[in-house]
Deep mutational scan, measured.
Amino acid sequence: MAAGGDHGSPDSYRSPLASRYASPEMCFVFSDRYKFRTWRQLWLWLAEAEQTLGLPITDEQIQEMKSNLENIDFKMAAEEEKRLRHDVMAHVHTFGHCCPKAAGIIHLGATSCYVGDNTDLIILRNALDLLLPKLARVISRLADFAKERASLPTLGFTHFQPAQLTTVGKRCCLWIQDLCMDLQNLKRVRDDLRFRGVKGTTGTQASFLQLFEGDDHKVEQLDKMVTEKAGFKRAFIITGQTYTRKVDIEVLSVLASLGASVHKICTDIRLLANLKEMEEPFEKQQIGSSAMPYKRNPMRSERCCSLARHLMTLVMDPLQTASVQWFERTLDDSANRRICLAEAFLTADTILNTLQNISEGLVVYPKVIERRIRQELPFMATENIIMAMVKAGGSRQDCHEKIRVLSQQAASVVKQEGGDNDLIERIQVDAYFSPIHSQLDHLLDPSSFTGRASQQVQRFLEEEVYPLLKPYESVMKVKAELCL
Rank of each mutant, 00 (worst) to 15 (best):
N336G: 07
V88N: 01
H7I: 01
W175A: 01
A348D: 02
V390L: 06
I427T: 14
T38L: 01
A49Q: 01
G418F: 01
I369R: 09
A143N: 02
C98S: 04
T167I: 06
E25T: 12
I139D: 00
L84K: 06
Y34F: 13
T166Y: 11
T58V: 03
G200F: 05
M89D: 03
A335I: 03
L42S: 14
V465Y: 15
R190P: 04
L135N: 05
Q221H: 11
Q164L: 06
Q184H: 04
D182K: 13
S12T: 13
Q375M: 15
I339A: 09
Q63R: 10
G4V: 14
I122Y: 06
P24G: 13
L355E: 00
I105S: 04
L482T: 02
L130S: 03
K477C: 15
V219I: 02
A322R: 10
T330W: 01
A78F: 00
I287F: 02
G169V: 02
P133L: 09
T119S: 04
I351F: 09
R85P: 07
F449K: 14
G4P: 11
P162R: 03
R196Y: 00
R20S: 10
T94I: 08
K477P: 07
E473Y: 12
S112E: 12
K147G: 02
T382D: 00
Q397W: 01
M89H: 04
I385D: 15
K147E: 01
K479I: 15
P100M: 00
L124S: 05
K284P: 15
I386D: 11
E81W: 04
V247T: 04
F460A: 00
I385Y: 15
F145H: 14
T382L: 08
Q164I: 07
G197S: 10
F433I: 15
R141D: 14
I72Q: 11
S454K: 01
L331K: 00
D178R: 11
L314C: 01
E79M: 03
V168Y: 11
L209R: 03
P100A: 05
P133H: 09
F74S: 07
D398T: 04
N384H: 10
R85E: 00
M181V: 04
P318V: 01
S412T: 09
T52L: 03
L131S: 05
P153K: 10
L124V: 12
I351R: 06
P471H: 10
C305I: 03
G96H: 00
F157L: 07
